[in-house]
Amino acid sequence: MSKTVMIVDDSTSMRQTVKICLSSAGYDVVEAEDGQDGIAKLDGRPVHLIIADVNMPVMGGIDMVKAIKQMPNYRFTPIMMLTTESDETRKREGQFAGAKAWVVKPFKPEQLLAAVAKLIMP
């Protein structure tokens, strides 16, 4: 059974690329465009990894992590933040909130795949 990854990002091209990249490696991908949308789309479905941008309208990545860590069915789901080098503080905030994995933007598709593979195999 293939693993499901949720990508939460307000950039359509980022979501699309992540989706193409992960699908080609055998993951199922669910897209959401901000934190609120992400939480709404969890909706009981099995999600094995959540990849989330930090900087998003409506609900940013860190608030989303905090919310997910309160959800009994998802509190142990690994969350990977898309951060930037200049956002070291946000990364720490994210880690503190419970997102233990991260990828520094800008990244190449293979870098993302490697990072995802460290958490879940397809």
Partner: peptide
């Protein structure tokens, strides 16, 4: 304002558009 350029940079990296990044 920050987010606009930030998003472009993030996505550009995926395609290897190093000059844009």
């Amino acid at each position: 304002l920050f987010r606009t350029v930030h998003t472009i940079k993030g996505s550009a990296g995926l395609f290897g558009f190093e000059a844009i990044v």
